[in-house]
Amino acid sequence: MPQEFTPDPLRRKARASLSNAAGRYDMVRDAVDDGWFQETPEAVIPTEVRQEAARSIITYNRSPDLPFDRSINPYRGCEHGCIYCFARPTHAYLGLSPGMDFETRLIARPNAAAVLRRELSAPRYKAATIALGTNTDPYQPCERNYGITRACLEVLRDFNHPVAIVTKGALVERDLDILAPMAAKGLVRVGISVTTLDADLSRRMEPRAPLPARRLAAIRRLTAAGVPVRVMTSPVVPGLTDHELEALLAAGAEAGADAASWIMLRLPREVSELWQEWLAEHEPGRAAKVMARLREMHGGRDYDPRWGHRMRGEGRYAEMIAQRFKAACKRLGLRERTPELRCDLFARPPQPGDQLALF
Rank of each mutant, 00 (worst) to 15 (best):
residue 113 A to V: 02
residue 142 C to F: 04
residue 140 Q to V: 15
residue 98 P to I: 02
residue 152 C to M: 08
residue 151 A to M: 10
residue 107 I to G: 00
residue 129 T to H: 07
residue 104 T to W: 04
residue 154 E to N: 05
residue 103 E to L: 03
residue 119 E to F: 04
residue 121 S to V: 04
residue 127 A to Q: 13
residue 148 I to S: 11
residue 97 S to T: 05
residue 172 V to C: 11
residue 162 P to W: 05
residue 138 P to F: 14
residue 173 E to R: 13
residue 135 N to S: 12
residue 136 T to Y: 12
residue 119 E to R: 03
residue 131 A to T: 09
residue 118 R to G: 10
residue 173 E to H: 05
residue 157 R to T: 05
residue 129 T to D: 09
residue 164 A to S: 10
residue 118 R to W: 07
residue 118 R to I: 05
residue 136 T to I: 08
residue 121 S to D: 08
residue 151 A to H: 12
residue 136 T to C: 13
residue 119 E to W: 02
residue 111 N to H: 09
residue 162 P to M: 08
residue 162 P to T: 07
residue 161 H to I: 09
residue 145 N to G: 15
residue 112 A to R: 02
residue 107 I to C: 00
residue 124 R to H: 13
residue 169 G to C: 11
residue 124 R to T: 13
residue 154 E to K: 07
residue 147 G to Q: 12
residue 159 F to N: 10
residue 159 F to H: 14
residue 102 F to S: 04
residue 160 N to E: 09
residue 109 R to P: 06
residue 124 R to L: 12
residue 167 T to D: 14
residue 172 V to W: 10
residue 172 V to F: 13
residue 142 C to A: 05
residue 119 E to D: 02
residue 126 K to Y: 05
residue 147 G to K: 06
residue 141 P to R: 12
residue 130 I to W: 07
residue 159 F to R: 08
residue 134 T to E: 09
residue 154 E to P: 02
residue 115 V to E: 00
residue 150 R to L: 10
residue 152 C to W: 04
residue 113 A to G: 03
residue 115 V to I: 14
residue 108 A to P: 02
residue 146 Y to S: 01
residue 121 S to M: 03
residue 162 P to F: 08
residue 159 F to W: 12
residue 156 L to M: 15
residue 133 G to E: 04
residue 145 N to F: 10
residue 132 L to N: 13
residue 144 R to A: 14
residue 137 D to L: 01
residue 101 D to V: 01
residue 142 C to E: 11
residue 109 R to K: 15
residue 130 I to G: 03
residue 113 A to K: 00
residue 113 A to Y: 05
residue 141 P to T: 15
residue 142 C to M: 14
residue 99 G to I: 00
residue 112 A to W: 07
residue 120 L to P: 11
residue 132 L to T: 14
residue 141 P to G: 14
residue 103 E to Y: 05
residue 101 D to G: 03
residue 135 N to K: 04
residue 128 A to Q: 09
residue 97 S to L: 06
residue 98 P to A: 00
residue 152 C to F: 11
residue 98 P to Y: 03
residue 167 T to P: 08
residue 121 S to C: 07
residue 122 A to M: 12
residue 113 A to Q: 04
residue 138 P to T: 15
residue 102 F to P: 00
residue 161 H to K: 11
residue 108 A to I: 00
residue 122 A to L: 10
residue 131 A to G: 00
residue 116 L to R: 01
residue 153 L to E: 06
